[in-house]
Design a protein around this nucleic acid. Structure first.
Lengths: 198, 198, 198, 198
DNA sequence: TGTTAAACGAGACGGTACGTCTAGTCTTGCG
DNA sequence: CGCAAGACTAGACGTACCGTCTCGTTTAACA
């Protein structure tokens, strides 16, 4: 990611919220987090980088965490498609590969967001909501697989998901090892043993 | 945890490092984190609570993260014994139950430590070291099980461990659901399927 | 002064300046200054109280100081009559009593205006003009008295006026003691010693 | 007044308040007020100029007004001596000349302080205290003159002082005409008519 | 009768200051 | 020397106000 030019030439929009401002803030927040001193980005720094008044940031976002959350969501928006081919093993593999790819791209953001969420309750809540939504997608996938008998009947879905997302966050936040397509393959196999019958 | 009396009556030890100071700092740090406004404890607050000079803290620890790390280690020291009965399923179950119990007791500390580690590289490094040590214990357990054929030969141990510790941290940091003995039982079963042969 | 209703029902006047707007702004500015947190009234507060857009205020007045100045002038307009009975002592007394009465009524405004004038050169200039006009009235009075020999021939008129208006502002801004009719009487006597000959 | 070097090389004093810091703050505050954009000096600007943390300023002074007040007091400290030769006319003249000279030197400070006092009640209170002390000095002088019969027996001392100090502040804040030794002479004559008998 | 020009409300925006907070460094003086 | 006390710098936090801007609506004046 290039160092992003000083934002300029952003015509006023009068009494309407200026979308360019929103863009600039979210982009700069994301970029700064990805930057060299990434961890710990200040609102002042974002405001300065985006050529935006601090006041404007606080007008639209209640806290730093909220800015990072929205920046992350926007960047992660690149559609993790939810496959449904009828075979859990392949669906899960595709879903995870896709998810991991998306997550790796916003790894910096996610770390910064987490740092915020660990101090700011509101940020934590927002993050949990986002996570819950994503979790629902995976649950749907697994439920279908379970219904088709592609998972042991006694499988504890929540536990399974905790293992999957747990591994993801663990690598992201703590050990910082990469989340590759290969990881997705291996992981989906431990969950949906491929030989499991129809 | 009771609100811990104001530390007092700590006689000088002259030119020797005063162990009581170390104790007071670590204890107060841990207690404050567990307290009502837990997240985000300041060095000033710790110093005040411990009746200790900030300077003294910085003489012995390089940063806030280091204090929290050591506090956590001390508290977690309550010996997670590493069982070796010859049966992976039961050993793993015992180990995880023990680990989860210990972790739940220092959950606040771990969250505070993580918040620090996400900003302070040094703290992160210290934490990773501690985590690696703990991981080695689990690896030993699994390796023995693998050697006895209690795990599928093709099992990727690192991935398995990422799943286990991932789940643990995921619940700790993000979803904040409890890590019970039951969790340990279920989890160890998904890893070492009890019926798996010798 | 009653808390002044929320301004409402002010029909548009199209491309003509709306006199009701001017009224509302000046009245609200004056009232807010007289209010409990009087010192330091913001344009936003005036706009809100007057139910007027900030833009409208800045269309008609160049700065906050200008608004306060005009508000003060309007309120002070209650005609300080310039007596000319032929006797300086009584004329001066009447003039001062009248002036003091008027000034006491806009004391809040004058303090607020002064606060502004001490920061904003333009406001200061406007205020000086107003003051100079009022000063001219007093000068006329004194000049006539001097011509009639009711003042010592060597009297320095400017110094005398500085003493009179100085006392007034001094009490207004600094010691905040009241400017009563009695003050006017005493003051006019020290200036135009009543026994002074014809 | 020269632009005052960037303050530097100010050795720590440990747990003792650093007098050099106090000096730097007061000096820079005074200098900035005297500077080209004199009116409206910010705490940030003072801190920057003095090479001092804002926090340090707020540790020792409760508000901007308090800083300006102390800066003014320090600068005005250049001992207005209180003469007592036994002749009111000459004593008063000397006192006023001295006072006016001192006041002219801190005119900028006094204006800035007044601007603050008109918004900040606490600053106003502090200023009033200082003014009252100075007023007491003058009162002593006049009381002695009155006792010696150098003033008309019916003279209202407070009114007289209001006229004197009123003129001073009026010129300082409003008309901005200079307070010269000549002013002192004229003024003292209107108060203590030189020919007034023993 | 339409068209245009200005007044107006709403309120976003950049800039700048406020006063508070924390991390981490430093010095004094006691024991 | 170890330590308590606490001053100090750096810089982030979130709030407030100023004066400028643009939008969309409303009416009066002009074509």
């Amino acid at each position: 990611m290039s160092p992003r030019e000083p934002v300029e030439a952003r015509p006023h929009t009068g009494r309407r919220r200026n979308p360019a401002v929103r863009r600039a803030v979210l982009d700069c927040a994301a970029d700064l987090l990805a930057g060299p001193d990434g961890m710990a980005v200040s609102i002042d720094a974002i405001a300065r980088a985006a050529g935006v008044s601090k006041h404007t940031i606080y007008r639209w976002w209640p806290s730093k965490g909220a800015v990072l959350l929205e920046a992350m969501i926007e960047r992660a928006q690149q559609e993790v498609t939810i496959p449904d081919t009828g075979a859990l093993a392949t669906d899960l593999e595709a879903f995870l590969a896709d998810t991991f790819r998306a997550v790796e791209q916003v790894a910096h953001l996610l770390r910064g967001l987490m740092a915020e969420a660990l101090r700011d309750t509101a940020a934590a809540e927002g993050m949990r909501e986002f996570i819950a939504a994503r979790r629902d997608e995976l649950r749907g996938l697994l439920v279908r697989g379970l219904a088709r008998g592609e998972l042991p009947a006694e499988t504890d879905l929540e536990l399974t998901m905790d293992q999957i997302y747990g591994l993801m966050w663990y690598r992201l936040l703590i050990v910082r090892s990469p989340l590759t397509t290969e990881t997705a393959v291996h992981l989906s196999r431990t969950v949906a043993r491929p030989g499991t019958p129809p």
